[in-house]
Nucleic acid binder design. Structure first.
Lengths: 347, 347
DNA sequence: GACGTTTCTGACTACGTAGACACATTCTGA
DNA sequence: TCAGAATGTGTCTACGTAGTCAGAAACGTC
């Protein structure tokens, strides 16, 4: 063979390392490292020479080597659920934005249905990548989950049963209070009671919203109608709406997210029951289209940025100086209700 | 100080490495490596002993070391736009699913508005992480972008001007044909012409859909009304709808995504113009709630899985055996139109 | 039983970075 | 002028994995 022995990398002559920069600048590799990390005790003239050499070679620090040397990757893994739902998607964007400002990189893994091990499998995948911390984006409780033990800080947006971690942090919007708020709004309009189209009860957020609804009813002494459970999607809201539409007793419904509320609205419209004339509806999330539905939807907006920022701040702190402390009780951001035209006083 | 010198890692006595496994199993580190990689020429009995030792120590391969040794990270970076829009979110989920089956890990970076350098900055961030390939999820053309040069394979879902890469791959749904399809449907119903509420023209997908609309009009000899440009969100659709509602000539509208179509529907409803009685509307995306709007929306669904799968297959192939070839002309998956109740024959 | 395979195992090494430490040079103050 | 600090630079090394190569052990064949 006349060809040179193949380089271990792609084939293009090896990417330059700090050694190459050092040679070009006429200094030692260690000095290059110093310049790279902005350490003191480098003569200004040398610093400039090294920086010029870096630019000339198109040098870029090798993160694998750095990670190996330091024993950490500056990387955080997020376990998502593999859906394009508004809440999870918005939260992921917030996570990325927040994380980037901390200097950590972001790996994501989805737990797909039918996936071996579900969350456990996803976590394992992240551990193999060598992440320094893990975020459980939408903790769900399948019931058949095997317990998960991780020797890393874990941030969970909702409580996750069966999780043992080096330190388990918890943050999240206060779904319970939000559910209570939505229900109280409807009760305050004079409705005898409020029906509830819940999210899938495997989801922590769905359970909390239901709890809030239940609390509000109990506090008002209102009877608690049977719960209808959907899957967050409009189709399931539509089905629930069809059933509720047949019952004249139903005058107020709290739907656990806006997408399902769209389905409920449609079912009521088809059944000829006017909103808010005969039935009042409150949604949850305040998706961008909520204001443009027929009628515009009264709903509870979520402040993802706030609780994501708090959670990640805690997580990063825990990674960099492990205390093993639980995160402080999350002070919830102020709750709001956006009142539009899908709710009206009981007739 | 009486405490032991701090270990370079978090503090817990160092994570076990292949050397520790080797010691426990009474073999050399290299043999552990062989077992780990399923290489032949390891006596069955030894293999079992090593595997037992791995389990006992909770051994997990150190990926940083592996990456350093191999000169590649088995990692692909995705540049997203930092929105929770349906299309991008759905596509990201599809990317994760597909990528995982190839053995690559996924890093994501958003290009936030106001971010230094936009796409260029995001790409730089990924390069620093040492990714082996890059995906531009929603290529947009800001006009003021500095050109981007990368010595890596890059997969772009839409053409990205100013990109120079080791090999630039391109895949994407055929937005042009889809736009034509939507427009032809409306023309076929007897409408004299079709108005268009376009997406932001910085987006490749938005430009393509507009092109398709234009082509269909031209082919039918229909006059081309002025284009209204939105930002994908319902609010912008609402504004466009308000303007269109005042013009009795408007009997058919192709809206570049379903979210904006929701806004258009709302504006028409408020103006007392019935859909589809007076005005027909076609959306794009087929979001889950499209079937539950009032009226249920006729729309063009996108097949993300198909083009993501094709694109990533090409990208991975290009990473593992670089040919520098352009990807073959993408054979588009069959286009569909979901006809619901927002379109009707012209009166 | 001598030879050649095939199977199996280990020693040594590179990968790129940054920490520990040694040493040289310059500066400061008495 | 000299001790001692402050400043600047280089050498050596560890980090954990897997490639290269050397060689040992087991097997078959005439």
């Amino acid at each position: 063979m006349s060809e040179a022995k193949p380089a271990p990398n792609g084939g293009r002559g090896r990417r330059p390392g700090s050694t190459d920069v050092a040679r070009l600048a006429g200094v030692s590799q260690k000095t290059v490292s110093r310049v790279l990390n902005g350490e003191p005790y480098v003569k200004e003239e040398v610093r400039l020479r090294v920086q010029a050499a870096m630019r000339e070679l198109g040098y870029r620090r090798n993160n694998a080597a750095r990670a190996l040397n330091e024993g950490r990757n500056r990387r955080i893994g997020v376990v998502c659920l593999g859906t394009a739902l508004f809440g999870p998607s918005t939260q992921l964007v917030a996570i990325e934005r927040t994380l980037r400002s901390t200097g950590y990189s972001l790996s994501i893994v989805n737990t797909l249905e039918g996936d071996t091990g579900g969350v456990a499998g996803a976590v394992e995948h992240l551990l193999e990548q060598g992440v320094d911390g893990i975020i459980l984006s939408e903790p769900i409780d399948e019931g058949d989950d095997q317990p998960i033990a991780v020797d890393l800080p874990v941030l969970s947006f909702g409580q996750f049963p069966g999780l043992t971690a080096r330190s388990a942090l918890y943050t999240g919007g206060d779904n319970t209070s939000a559910g209570r708020l939505a229900t109280e709004h409807l009760l305050g309009l004079g409705h005898r009671t409020v029906w509830h189209v819940a999210g899938p009860q495997r989801w922590w957020a769905a359970r909390e919203r239901l709890d809030g609804w239940r609390q509000a009813l109990a506090a008002a002494g209102a009877p608690e109608p049977p719960v209808l459970e959907g899957d967050w999607l409009p189709a399931s809201g539509y089905e629930a709406g069809q059933r509720l539409a047949t019952d004249d007793e139903v005058t107020a419904i709290f739907v656990a997210n806006d997408d399902m509320a769209i389905g409920v609205l449609r079912a009521l419209a088809e059944a000829g029951r006017s909103v808010p004339g005969e039935v009042s509806i409150v949604g949850f999330d305040d998706i961008p289209s909520a204001a443009y539905l027929s009628p515009p939807l009264t709903t509870v907006p979520q402040d993802f940025d706030a609780h994501v920022a708090r959670g990640i701040a805690n997580l990063v702190m825990e990674i960099e100086s492990p205390t093993g402390d639980r995160s402080p009780a999350p002070e919830s951001p102020p709750l709001r209700l956006v009142i539009r035209h899908s709710t009206a006083p009981a007739s």
